[in-house]
């Protein structure tokens, strides 16, 4: 439990850093670290497949995409963030976390739940027998993403 808590604190810390850091490249890397830690949290929750996906896809592939974009857009002027936001938002965040810590436990204690039977079978069986339609959805989402990127980077035909 202590290990999990430490890992989760790390996830939140690096996520906040990813948003707060001024340099975009550094924030992309902290986001990757946060994903890596979250992946380990998933492993410890007996969800190895989700953990592998989180580490390889989110910490790996998405980070590569981010860094590629940052490299392609490097030449632009630095974006100046608002000063007010830099002061006020951390305070709001700390206040939210405090309220979260006070309220969440009693709130969740009130959630009534049906006593659920344990799941039977392996992950493959659950995925294939229970959630096959999600695979169709995944194919659709991937197709949508591929065609979206193709459309946005297509060569314009001259028409003026």
């Amino acid at each position: 439990m202590i290990v999990q808590t430490a890992l989760l604190i790390g996830v939140v810390l690096f996520s906040v850093l990813a948003i707060a850091l001024r340099d975009v490249l550094r924030s992309a890397i902290s986001l990757a670290v946060a994903s890596l830690l979250l992946g380990i949290v998933f492993f410890k929750m007996n969800a190895p497949y989700a953990g592998v996906f989180e580490i390889s896809v989110v910490a790996g592939l998405i980070t590569v995409l981010f860094i590629l974009t940052i490299a392609l857009t490097r030449a632009g002027d630095e974006v100046r963030e608002s000063r007010l936001v830099n002061w006020v938002f951390p305070l709001v965040f700390v206040a939210f976390v405090a309220v979260d810590a006070l309220v969440m436990k009693s709130l969740l204690g009130k959630v009534p739940a049906l006593a659920a039977g344990a799941e039977a079978g392996t992950f493959g069986e659950v995925l294939w027998k229970g959630r096959t339609f999600d695979l169709v959805g995944q194919i659709a989402v991937i197709l949508a993403g591929v065609f979206a990127v193709l459309a946005l980077f297509r060569k314009r035909e001259k028409h003026d």
């Binding site: 929750m45 969800a47 497949y49 989700a50 996906f53 392996t122 992950f123 659950v126 995925l127 959630r131």
Partner: peptide, 8 residues
Amino acid sequence: ILTAQALV
């Protein structure tokens, strides 16, 4: 956890 894993 297995279902949740598939969702994630």
